[in-house]
C-alpha cells in the first residue's frame, strides 16, 4: 500500500501539470485581468487607459445601471422561487417512487437540459410571439379575439429562465428528499400531524441542504443570463449579462464592462459561500473514497 502511494505521488505532477497550467492561464489569469482592468480608464476610441480609479464602480450607481442590476436580481430571485415551487412536488414524487422508476424519472428531467439552450429558448419564441403557437391556438379556440404580444417582456424572460434551469433545482432536491427517513413522516402521521405540519416541520427542514443547493444552481446562471433576456426580453428587460455584452461588444467600454463583471462575480461568490454552508450535509463525507 505505502509503496504504491509513494510510487504514485512523484510523477503525478506530470499528469496534473498541463491541466493546471491550462486552467490557470485561461481561467484564473483572465479573471484577474478583468479585475485589474475594472479600475482602468477608457480611451477615446474604446481602448484601455492604464490608470487607477474607482470611476467605473461609481458609474454603476447611476440609476440606469442600478435599475438593470436590481431587475436582474429580482428576475433571478423570482426564477429561483418559481423553480422551487414547481420542482419541489416533482422531486418529492420522484424520491418516493419505486427505485427502478426513480432512474427513469430523473433521466426524463435531465434530457431537456442536454438539448441546446439556444434551441430551447427559440422554442419559447416560437410559442409566445404574436403570430406564435399560443396566440394561434387561443384564436382558433375563440378564447381571445386578437393576438396579444407575449414575447419581449419580463414574463417571457422568466418563463425562459425557469424552463432552462428547472432541472438544476429538481436534482439536488431529489438527492435531499430521497434521504429523508420515511419512518419520521409515518411517525408524524401517527401523531395526527396535518399534511402541512408534516411538510413544514419534518420534510422541509430535512430537505434544506437540497433547497440551498438547488437555489444556488438556479440563481447563479439566472443572474448571469445573457441569451434568455436577449431573445425573449424586450428593450426594458435587460439583465446584467446583456449589460456586460453591451459594454464589451457594442459600447466598447471594456473597463466598465469589467467592473460589472466583477460585481457579478462578487454576487456569485457571496451566494456560493452562503448556500454551500447550508448545503454541507448534501456533500458525501470524504472518508467514503
Amino acid at each position: 500500500m505505502k509503496i504504491s502511494v509513494s510510487v504514485g505521488r512523484a510523477p503525478s505532477w506530470w499528469l496534473l501539470g498541463p491541466g493546471l497550467v491550462w486552467m490557470g492561464l485561461l481561467f484564473v489569469v483572465p479573471l484577474c485581468l478583468m479585475f485589474v482592468i475594472s479600475f482602468a480608464g477608457r480611451g477615446t476610441y474604446g481602448g484601455i487607459v492604464w490608470s487607477f480609479s474607482l470611476t467605473n464602480y461609481l458609474d454603476l450607481l447611476h440609476p440606469l445601471y442600478a435599475r438593470i442590476l436590481g431587475q436582474s436580481i429580482l428576475l433571478a430571485a423570482g426564477t429561483t422561487l418559481l423553480c422551487l415551487t414547481m420542482g419541489f412536488p416533482l422531486a418529492y414524487y420522484i424520491a418516493r417512487a419505486a427505485p427502478r422508476r426513480q432512474g427513469i424519472w430523473l433521466l426524463l428531467v435531465m434530457i431537456p437540459f442536454w438539448t441546446n439552450f439556444l434551441v430551447r429558448t427559440y422554442a419559447w419564441m416560437f410559442i409566445l410571439r404574436t403570430e406564435g403557437l399560443l396566440n394561434t391556438v387561443l384564436l382558433k379556440l375563440g378564447v381571445i379575439s386578437s393576438p396579444s404580444e407575449l414575447l419581449y417582456s419580463n414574463t417571457a424572460v422568466m418563463i425562459g429562465l425557469v424552463y432552462g434551469y428547472l432541472p438544476f433545482m429538481v436534482l439536488p432536491l431529489y438527492v435531499a428528499l430521497e434521504r429523508v427517513d420515511r419512518t419520521l413522516v409515518e411517525a408524524a402521521w401517527d401523531l395526527y400531524a396535518t399534511r402541512w405540519t408534516v411538510f413544514r416541520r419534518i420534510i422541509l427542514p430535512l430537505a434544506k441542504p437540497g433547497v440551498a443547493a438547488g437555489c444556488l444552481l438556479v440563481f447563479i446562471p439566472s443572474l448571469g443570463a445573457f441569451l434568455t433576456p436577449d431573445l425573449l426580453g424586450g428593450a426594458r428587460s435587460m439583465m446584467i449579462g446583456n449589460l456586460i455584452q453591451h459594454e464589451f461588444l457594442v459600447a466598447r467600454d471594456w473597463p466598465l464592462g469589467a467592473a460589472i463583471s466583477c460585481l457579478l462575480m462578487l454576487c456569485v461568490v457571496g451566494m456560493m459561500r452562503w448556500s454551500l454552508r447550508a448545503a454541507k450535509p448534501l456533500v458525501p463525507p470524504e472518508s467514503e473514497s
Partner: peptide
Amino acid sequence: GLEGLPGRRQRQIEQALLLPLVIPEVMMGV
C-alpha cells in the same frame, strides 16, 4: 493525477477546478 495527491490538497484543487462549471458563462466568455 489528483489521485496521487494527499486527500486535503486533492479536495482543494478539485473544488477550484469545478469553479468554471458554476460561474455564469458570460463571465467566462468576456
